[in-house]
């Protein structure tokens, strides 16, 4: 479960995230949408303890991130937008390292590392340095690391970027299974089709403020889009209708 109370982040005068109140339940896949620079990554960084809020609180499974960061972090698995991992370690070594810092028992970790590498089709690259991996492979090794300690909250920042269609499908299936086991999945994405098909609820953030939240149907009703796509809904809510001018320009 993820809960934020009046979560705010300011950089000088600029308000990156403004009094954000979220409540993501266990077993739920929550899509966090917003245009570029809306405050998605800043929010994710505050949820995972990478950034301290200016004010407000973050609770992971009821644990206050500020007061008990170690306990809270032990329950999180993060998949960041850029898969920057130790380039001079092999995939195998990186996962063993993760198992050690999350204190997974040795017998369990050997079995889990092998299993997860096979599942993500990385076994053949397990003993090669990560710096030689393609972007998609690096993304997969980060996913493997995030899942290794079986976190109760999985936070993903643009999880399918750089993945081939087969791997993207695998991730989508995996997230569904994960949520069905009672775990919380919080995902920021630009791919509205993924949000529409996978998420139980979505939240739309713009200029640091949560402007809409609910199931896709609820949002449609609220905006009066009827049978329109999530894309239309998103553009209407975030003022992205300017794109129509761009399309007109391109047509001309």
């Amino acid at each position: 479960m993820i809960e934020t109370v009046d979560l705010t982040k300011k950089y000088g005068e600029f308000v990156a995230v403004n009094h954000l109140n979220l409540h993501v339940k266990s077993g739920e896949i929550y899509g966090f949408l917003g245009p570029n620079g809306a405050g998605k990554t800043t929010t994710i960084r505050m949820l995972t303890g990478l950034l301290q809020p200016t004010s407000g609180k973050v609770f992971i499974d009821g644990i206050n991130m500020e007061e008990e960061p170690i306990k809270a972090k032990a329950r999180i698995g993060l998949i960041p937008d850029t898969p920057s991992v130790y380039p001079k370690l092999t995939g195998n070594e990186f996962l063993n390292f993760i198992a050690a810092i999350y204190e997974i028992p040795p017998e369990e970790s050997v079995h889990k590392v092998k299993e997860i590498l096979e599942m993500l089709e990385l076994s053949h690259k397990a003993d090669e340095l990560i710096e030689t991996y393609s972007h998609g492979m690096k993304q997969k090794i980060v996913i493997a690391a995030a899942l290794l300690h079986d976190p109760s909250v999985l936070i993903l920042d643009e999880p399918t970027v750089g993945l081939d269609p087969k791997s993207a499908k695998l991730i989508k299936d995996l997230l569904r299974v994960y949520a069905s086991r009672g775990k919380t999945v919080f995902m920021s994405t630009h791919i509205l089709e993924i949000a529409e098909r996978m998420c139980d609820r979505v939240g739309i953030i713009n200029h640091g403020t949560l402007i809409a939240e609910g199931t896709i149907e609820e949002l449609r009703r609220r905006v009066g889009e009827g049978e329109g796509t999530l894309e239309d809904l998103f553009l209407k809510l975030t003022g992205g209708e300017d794109t129509k001018d761009l399309l007109k320009f391109l047509e001309d």
């Binding site: 303890g49 993060l78 810092i101």
Partner: peptide, 9 residues
């Protein structure tokens, strides 16, 4: 890769 350390317990 400092994020790996900072997000870990």
């Amino acid at each position: 890769s400092i994020w790996v350390i900072l997000t870990s317990p």
